[in-house]
Each structure stands twice: as C-alpha cells, then as structure tokens.
Design a protein around this nucleic acid. Structure first.
Lengths: 98, 98
DNA sequence: ATCCAATATCGGAGTTTCCCGATATATAGA
DNA sequence: TCTATATATCGGGAAACTCCGATATTGGAT
C-alpha cells in the first residue's frame, strides 16, 4: 500500500469520479450489457466522462497501478471494480497519520 | 472545502510530511526558539527536508491555499499550524464518498 | 483467414509541477 | 539610517502529467 502513489492517483478529479461511480454501479452503469457483478467495462467510463478511449484507458491504468481497482479480463473485455481492501487500508492510514 | 485542491496538495510526499510533522511539534521541532504554541516557523521545515528556502515556501503556500494550514504572521516570522477543521472535514468527506 | 469490437500502447503537443538561485519585501535591532 | 534575518515572489529549466489520434493487440464471430 503505497500511500504516495495512491494520493497521486487521487489527485485528478476524473479518477476520483471513476471510483465513486464504481461504488454504485447500478446507479451509474445501468445500461451495461454485461452483469454488473462482473465489474464495469472500460467503455462505460468513456461514455460518461467525455474523454477519449486512450485517455480513459490511461486513467484506469493509473488507478490499477495504485491498486485502487482490480481488473478481470474476460474475452476482449476488461471489467474493473474497486479494490475495497486497499481503499479501506488507505483511508485508515490517512485518518491515523494525517 | 475544495476536495480536488486538497487531494492535489496531498499529492506530494513532502507536503504530507509537513502536515504529519505539525501533528507532533514537540517531537519534530523541539529546537525552535519560539514557543511551539505559536506554530512552526517556515525555517524549521527548511532545516528538516533538505529543500531550498523558496521551495519550502512554495510547498507551505500550497498547503495554505488548500486551507490545510493556517499562518500567523508575527514580526518577521510566519508561524504555521494545521487547520484541523479542514483536515477533519476532508477526511470525513473522503471516507463517505470514496 | 478475415473482419469487427474492446482495450492497450505509442508518439507528440500543451500544461502543470517541482526545484533552484536571485531578488523583493518586511521587520527587528544597532 | 544601515544591516541582518525571515519569508515571499520571480524567472527559468527539467520533469511529470494530461490529452489526443494513430496504431498494436487480443479475442470473438463469420
């Protein structure tokens, strides 16, 4: 759990927004073809944030490197979901050290 | 309380370190000439982080713009201390939204 | 094999951040 | 007034970040 890397990952509002969207998938991604239990497809974020496909892919990659999300690759899709363990550990650490 | 601005301010380890140091002044700034209750002099950070005076001043300014610290100017000195209200509000917000 | 769809990666332009030394400002003291 | 100290601000170079379109890769379908 690299606190600095996580804080840098959170230093862009789009990435924070992605994490918040993933907290309530049924609310933000109700039109996804695949079941939400599998995670959220990369293209779903693209549709909602107005950024290009490559930019969205880079943001998701940043979140993954910080271990804030996990990826399940199924076929040609990448399903993203929050890594609640890292997020909780980070929040606990921040609360106690900051 | 601008969450994005705060997260950007926290996205540099030196600034996080400054905040953590200020949490325990008697531990980290025991050699300060002025009473610690007044806050921490800018030069105290300079001594401990190995960065130049202007760089330290800029980091402290970033923390202040994000309202994570407050400044008391007395004579030629600037005494910094944590703004616990903003910090607590930020942590609460982060815990509930992230 | 070929085509299409989803995602990742590359290359580059523009912006922001980070750091420094130099200079400005403001106060204190002789 | 002159000097020393503390901090802020300026200017610029280097590095990192952000974004895009183009291209590569991967897997599914025909």
């Amino acid at each position: 759990m690299d606190k600095t890397e996580i804080l840098k990952a959170l230093a862009h509002p789009v990435r924070v927004e992605f994490l918040e969207w993933m907290k309530e998938p049924e609310r933000h991604f109700c039109d996804q073809a695949h079941p939400l239990e599998m995670g959220i497809c990369a293209s779903q974020f693209e549709k909602r944030c107005g950024l290009s496909q490559s930019t969205v892919s880079a943001h998701l990659s940043t979140l993954e490197k910080a271990r804030l999300v996990k990826i399940d690759r199924v076929g040609q899709w990448a399903f993203y979901h929050r890594d609640e363990k890292t997020i909780a550990a980070f929040l606990d650490d921040l609360r106690s050290t900051l």
